[in-house]
Simulated assay, not measured.
Amino acid sequence: MGEIILGMPGPWAEDCREKADHYTTKIGGLPDWPTPDLGMKDDLLHCSVCGRNLCLVAQVYAPISFPKLNLEERVIYILGCPMPKCGGDPRSWRALRVQKYHSEMQLDNNGQVAKPLEEDSAPISKTNNYVEEDSSITGSGREEDESDSDMDLQEFARALSEAASLASQSKKQSTSKHSGSTVRAMATKPRVNSPSIPVVPCFYMYSQKEQSTADKDTICASYSSLSIKEKQNTATDTEDEEKWEGETYEYDTALGADRTYLKFKKQLDAHPEQCFRYSYGGSPLLATTDLAECDTCKFCGSPRNYELQLMPPLLYFLHEAAEGSSAYSPDGWSWMTLIVYTCSKSCCPAFCGEKPGSCCWGVAEEAIIIQNE
């Protein structure tokens, strides 16, 4: 917590409707659902203002890890309505948290993480029983029993090794536990034929840690001092002209300026291509002081935490890429930032308790707060 990860623009997709996977962090295109059977309600994918299909704005692979909770299969989808009259209305936006909850991660009635089920230890006990039963089946001498047991054990170990190898090949690897951590080579991706779903231009993201405040202040100070020296040298060469008095400009001391906005602009100027900011449990970068109150989780009643926010450069890239293409142009989107709050416990919105040892995918709608100009 506290660490800020910036989503920076990577390569453009060859086709806006090309297929990827849910481990991929990207802007635009079609949502890559982890499984077709999510049990998602239809109204979550439709605009509450005009009733049309929503389009994907951002897909962020966002695993989290805590002492009692470790979720690798977790994605945040941000959807918006591309219609010009709907873009500024909060009802035309959706933030969906999609995650896979194993049985040992389920919540009890009090919203707490349940203890691991006993069935999790079953594979070990079964293995031991398998070895013991094999060693007692034959009625031959002890040496034959031991050799047969060793052979069975070797075969079993080989089977486990092959299974582990297949699992490691199928499991997607991530270079970081934070959002935007997965950057993939997008060559020859298959196209998905979904003409009814609107799309905005698609490009992929890579992550970058934001510099500390001290580092940015040092850089800004060096730029200011350099500017002053250059102007002073110019003044000495032109003595007949009006003498320039050096002065420094600071965002926080601008007369009559909104300090909240100036801080927002200062952070934006430090990384002018940032499309989103991610800091699970951190603090949002506000564009205005007018911040709507965020409600609690609809499933477990826990307070929601800040997780990520979309930034203005995202709109610029989408506008530029939409010209002359078949993709939608976000003409009605003029927000300064779009902030997403998610359940602080990342609770499971589905119920898998009826099937011990099973796991399931769950979909939860989270809160979005829009700050306009």
Results as ranks from 00 to 15, higher is better:
214 A>C: 00
180 G>F: 14
173 Q>K: 12
168 S>I: 08
143 E>C: 03
149 S>F: 02
254 A>T: 05
262 L>C: 07
249 Y>L: 14
258 D>W: 00
184 R>N: 10
205 M>R: 00
180 G>Q: 02
266 K>G: 01
168 S>P: 00
186 M>T: 15
164 A>N: 09
217 D>N: 12
147 S>F: 02
225 S>G: 00
197 I>S: 04
231 K>F: 04
258 D>I: 01
263 K>T: 05
163 A>T: 11
195 P>C: 02
196 S>N: 07
182 T>E: 06
227 S>A: 15
239 E>D: 10
145 D>I: 03
148 D>W: 03
165 S>K: 11
150 D>C: 02
260 T>W: 01
176 S>M: 05
158 R>C: 03
241 E>S: 15
242 E>C: 07
246 G>H: 07
168 S>M: 10
215 D>I: 04
182 T>K: 07
217 D>V: 06
197 I>Q: 07
238 T>W: 10
233 N>L: 10
152 D>R: 13
254 A>D: 03
212 S>H: 03
170 S>N: 11
231 K>H: 07
142 R>M: 10
220 C>V: 10
187 A>K: 14
239 E>M: 13
197 I>A: 03
194 S>E: 06
228 I>N: 07
168 S>R: 12
177 K>Q: 06
145 D>Q: 14
220 C>G: 00
217 D>W: 04
206 Y>L: 00
201 P>M: 01
245 E>Y: 08
244 W>H: 12
253 T>G: 00
244 W>Q: 15
265 K>D: 05
207 S>E: 06
224 S>Y: 01
188 T>W: 06
209 K>I: 04
230 E>W: 04
229 K>H: 08
222 S>E: 14
243 K>C: 09
224 S>N: 06
236 T>D: 08
213 T>C: 00
224 S>T: 15
163 A>V: 04
189 K>A: 08
195 P>W: 03
221 A>C: 04
247 E>I: 05
257 A>Y: 02
165 S>H: 08
146 E>G: 00
156 F>H: 11
169 Q>Y: 09
151 M>E: 11
189 K>D: 03
164 A>Q: 11
217 D>L: 12
144 E>K: 04
227 S>T: 08
145 D>K: 13
240 D>Q: 12
184 R>C: 07
267 Q>G: 00
207 S>T: 01
261 Y>L: 13
254 A>V: 09
182 T>F: 11
190 P>G: 07
157 A>S: 06
207 S>H: 02
193 N>K: 06
182 T>Y: 13
239 E>T: 14
202 C>E: 05
177 K>L: 14
195 P>V: 02
218 T>M: 11
227 S>I: 04
175 T>K: 11
202 C>Q: 14
250 E>M: 06
157 A>M: 10
260 T>Q: 05
155 E>T: 05
252 D>G: 03
159 A>R: 14
236 T>A: 09
161 S>T: 15
265 K>R: 12
151 M>S: 06
154 Q>I: 14
196 S>R: 08
188 T>R: 10
176 S>H: 05
206 Y>K: 02
214 A>Y: 04
262 L>S: 09
221 A>L: 11
158 R>D: 15
